[in-house]
Computed example of a mutant assay.
Amino acid sequence: MFQSNGYGAMGGAKMRYQTVDVASQVEGASPHRLVGILFEELMKATEIMLAAMRAGNRAKMIDKQARAANILLALETSLDFRNGGEIALNLARVYRESRRLVQLGGRTNDPAQVETARGYLSEIVDAWEQIG
Rank of each mutant, 00 (worst) to 15 (best):
E76R: 14
T77H: 11
E27Y: 14
Y17I: 09
M43E: 07
R58H: 13
M53E: 06
A74V: 02
V20I: 14
K44G: 05
V94N: 00
R67W: 00
R118G: 01
S30D: 06
S4P: 01
L50P: 00
K14Y: 11
F39Y: 14
R58A: 13
V125C: 07
A92T: 07
E123D: 12
E86F: 04
T108S: 13
N109F: 05
R99T: 10
K64S: 08
G28H: 06
D126E: 15
S30M: 07
G105S: 12
A23E: 11
I131S: 11
D126K: 12
L101I: 08
V94P: 01
E123K: 14
A52C: 07
A68L: 12
K64P: 03
D21H: 09
E27I: 12
N57T: 10
V22T: 14
Y120C: 13
V102E: 07
E86M: 09
G84N: 07
K64A: 03
F2E: 09
G28S: 04
R93A: 10
A45N: 04
G8T: 00
A68N: 00
M10H: 08
H32T: 15
R67C: 08
S4V: 08
M15R: 10
L50H: 06
D21E: 13
Q130F: 03
N90R: 11
S30G: 08
A92V: 01
K64Y: 10
A23Q: 14
L104C: 05
V102Y: 01
A51L: 12
G106P: 01
V22A: 07
R58Y: 13
L121M: 11
S24G: 02
S122R: 14
A29L: 12
A66N: 08
I71V: 09
E129Y: 12
L101A: 02
L72C: 04
A13S: 05
A9W: 02
G119T: 13
P31M: 09
M10P: 00
I87K: 09
G28M: 06
E47N: 14
Q18L: 15
Q65G: 06
P111L: 12
R54Q: 15
L72M: 01
A88S: 11
R58C: 06
A51C: 08
G11R: 07
R67F: 10
A127C: 02
S98T: 04
I131K: 12
L75Q: 01
W128L: 06
K64E: 13
N83Y: 07
D21C: 02
A52N: 05
M1Y: 03
R100L: 12
N90I: 00
